[in-house]
Nucleic acid binder design. Structure first.
Lengths: 101, 101
DNA sequence: ACCCTTTATCGTAATTTAACGATAGAACAG
DNA sequence: CTGTTCTATCGTTAAATTACGATAAAGGGT
């Protein structure tokens, strides 16, 4: 299990987080543990196709996992991967938390 | 001093981090404390105008500060702001660090 | 006054992103 | 088998991003 991120991967994941809708989706996924696409559509003021696209971005960045369940797709946060990102970011930003004058 | 980020602001900052070159720039800035644009140009395989544009993105997202020093501009990481981002992200991602099965 | 260094900005082109409606396919219910 | 529900994908459009070279402006040195 690789616990280290390349700069490119870290950037890819940050980029996926770089849209308010996608942060909202991730937040909801962490809150509800499991969500189908339709549930997200209820919450965000966006069309279903747009939400589906945002979910795809998050999935391709490796931040969430989607598994097909009959006619639906059930999404959940990839906590392992998110923890990896958290580690990488805190490593990057740690100088800001310590050497504060 | 506002220590809380709106979702929009967090997304804006993540988006600014969403490019390998900009992560590299930030890393260098945290390493060297102060850098002029030309120093970054030495390190990254990018044209000066491109680097300048990336610096602008980072500055507009509030991640770095640039102050004019004669003919140069000296950039440094906005550690205060980066700490705020670190806090917001760890708040967002904390469920991934705790509830790991 | 003149040059040299440094950097921001402009203009441009190619690619990517974001949003929507429409549509198609999969799976369950009846 | 038929209809319904759910979601991914397609097609499209507008806007943003990324990269570069060229240029202009600002300031220091001689």
């Amino acid at each position: 299990m690789d616990t280290d991120l390349t700069t490119v991967d870290a950037a890819r994941m940050c980029k996926a987080l770089g849209h308010p809708a996608r942060i909202g989706i991730l937040r909801q996924l962490l809150l509800e543990e499991r969500c189908i696409c339709g549930r997200i559509v209820e919450i965000l003021p966006l069309a279903q196709s747009t939400v589906s696209q945002h979910l795809k971005v998050l999935k391709e960045a490796g931040l969430i996992i989607g598994e097909v369940e009959g006619p639906r797709t059930c999404y959940c946060a990839d906590r392992q991967r998110l923890a990896t990102l958290a580690t990488a970011l805190s490593a990057l930003l740690s100088p800001c938390l310590e050497e504060q004058p």
